[in-house]
Design a protein around this nucleic acid. Structure first.
Lengths: 155, 155
DNA sequence: ATATTTGCAAAGAGTTTGCATCATA
DNA sequence: TATGATGCAAACTCTTTGCAAATAT
């Protein structure tokens, strides 16, 4: 799906969600959603805040955090804690659940998907009678970059 | 291995590490290590700080954080970010790498181990030419507790 | 009309840092 | 005795909160 059409689709999904929850359809919420769906990769709350200003759409940090919460709740974005204390977000509509490879040296984040994660999930679910709704799998190490593999810093 | 003997063993490992890195063998470092190896489960920096005071061994927060860093570096403990912004730690000597099941309702953390995680790791390592040193796999959902499964709060 | 959402700034939680003092090597 | 470690408090970062003003319904 082209980026344009995807943006229309997620705006529609947000509209439906806000209607259903009887929340208000403010311009801020749609502008933030639009910004997020034009971004690639992971971003933090502050980067989003700066990006909105650069676009000449001024929103407060409070609104950024409030909106991220709304978008998380309707599953249009995902939040990750890759370590450290900085939450990173990414758009999630039209992306299949994926996992991450994180380089301890250059901090590059790569994505992969392995169907066996789901198999493990199902087995665990049955064994512990746990209703699993989500997962995160991160591998930490050194990426293919020669410079990274040579240094001996760790996570 | 009995807890007593395990504590002696990890103290010895810490001694060797400090010698090798030419760091000082301060009483604080050993007392904190001892406290950690008498604990069960996960703890945060503040809980450790309180526990040390209750034991009548006064250390500052700065020393707690400094020591946690040292213990992470010599792999006697592990740090987890299960979501939110609170780092949790756990002792790691004599425990095989394990993964976590986290209840979104009661926040209970359970542990499991599935050998297929390693298989995925090896495949990813080969495919991306990534040298993986560590991983974290968390499943989020509702635990077997009936009260938890009924409520519809999410992560 | 009215209740939610916003913006701002202040508060809060967790962690890190600067510096004088202490103590290990 | 000299350098690394500690304690304390202040600083810092990220996030949340309180409240008055704005605005969606």
């Amino acid at each position: 799906m082209a980026t344009e059409r995807k943006i229309d689709r997620v705006k529609q999904l947000l509209t439906e969600y806000l209607d259903q929850k009887e929340l208000r359809k403010t311009p801020e919420r749609f502008a933030i959603l639009e910004e997020i769906y034009q971004k690639e990769g992971h971003f933090d709350a502050d980067a989003l805040y700066i990006a909105m200003r650069n676009r000449n759409f001024r929103v407060s940090k409070a609104t950024i955090y409030n909106t991220l919460e709304v978008l998380l709740d309707c599953q249009l974005i995902k939040r990750h804690q890759f370590g450290e204390n900085l939450a990173l977000y990414e758009k999630s509509y039209g992306f299949k659940q994926h996992d991450h490879l994180i380089c301890a040296d250059c901090n590059k984040i790569m994505e992969f998907c392995d169907p066996r994660v789901h198999i493990i999930q199902q087995m665990i679910e049955g064994f512990y009678n746990f209703k699993i709704t989500d997962h995160s799998l991160n591998f930490y190490g050194k990426c293919m970059n020669k410079g990274c593999q040579e240094k001996d810093n760790v996570r």
